[in-house]
Amino acid sequence: MNWNKFSELNIVFTQKQKQNLIKYKDILQEQNRIHNLTAIIQDQEIIDKHFYDSLIFTKVFNPDSLEILDIGTGAGFPGIVLKIMFPNSKIYLLESNGKKINFLNTVIKELELENIWTLKIRAEEYAIKNKEKFDVIISRAMAPLNILLEVGVQALKIKGIFICLKSKNIANELKDLNNQETKLGLSLYKKQNYEDEILGERNNIFYIKNCSTPTEYPRLYSQIRKRPLGK
């Protein structure tokens, strides 16, 4: 297995971190034979397309020692990877699929990770109950921007950062959003464009929360899906 690419992100592994990532990979491959967790199953593919991809944003943003909500974490990307690499951060893994929650709990137990929690609940429900709790909200390939921002934003602190890990289709998502993030109290903070020979184009979008989100957001999910922001 080749880990050389991580040096491009200025990442240096401790022995324990690399051991935990390998153990995480092994559990993922084992459990994936029973449950459909990921279509990416080969050793190097998991390292490149899950672990490395989860960490690209850290080249321009340091998540260390922050309280982070990972919305739609799936099999733990990027949340568990962040916990392994930035152990001082507090990580909340939000996922509505019960089988994936069970998998995440297995990984947390086997790797003996601390200050990391799983949440089996819809994002918009959790955000309303936990207003302005998190320094960072992050999500990888969960939903388009005009849905993702609305369902999660209430849980973000003022001056907190909403990080959306995206691929090459970001231009269409930004067009569909039509600058309507301002209705949520957000403004565009930073864009990270990253080209990789294996992953292709990656576009990570960072929003900063300038003020409290109006109480009418998030709307019911059926309303959000029927008429997303910007439509």
Rank of each mutant, 00 (worst) to 15 (best):
K109I: 11
V81G: 06
R33A: 14
V153F: 04
T106Y: 10
N204L: 09
P228Q: 07
F206E: 05
N146Q: 13
R33S: 12
I91N: 02
K226N: 14
Y221V: 00
Y189H: 15
N97T: 14
T213F: 03
L145Q: 01
E8F: 10
N193E: 15
L111T: 03
N36T: 02
N105T: 11
L149G: 04
L148G: 09
L55A: 13
A39T: 13
A143P: 00
F103N: 00
A75I: 06
L37Y: 08
Q44C: 10
I138Y: 05
I40T: 01
R202Y: 09
C164Y: 07
E124G: 01
I22R: 05
R33M: 14
E8M: 13
Q44N: 15
L55N: 06
L148E: 13
K133D: 08
E95K: 09
N10A: 15
K231Y: 14
R202F: 04
E150L: 08
Q44L: 05
R225Q: 14
I68Q: 02
E114F: 11
L177I: 01
L104W: 09
K157P: 07
E95V: 06
S7I: 14
D53A: 01
D135I: 13
G79E: 04
I205L: 05
D43G: 08
T213P: 02
K109P: 04
G160S: 05
K59Y: 11
T58S: 06
E216F: 12
Y221T: 03
E216S: 14
K83G: 02
P78T: 10
S89V: 10
I101S: 06
F57C: 09
E95N: 05
C211P: 05
N130Q: 07
Y217C: 00
Y194A: 02
R219I: 08
S54V: 00
E114R: 14
Y194N: 07
N169Y: 06
S167L: 12
P228K: 00
V81I: 13
N88F: 09
I80N: 02
L55Y: 01
Y52K: 10
H35K: 12
E197N: 15
Q223S: 15
E150H: 02
Q31F: 14
L188P: 00
L66W: 02
I80L: 03
V60C: 11
I47Q: 05
M85I: 03
E30T: 10
S139L: 10
F162K: 01
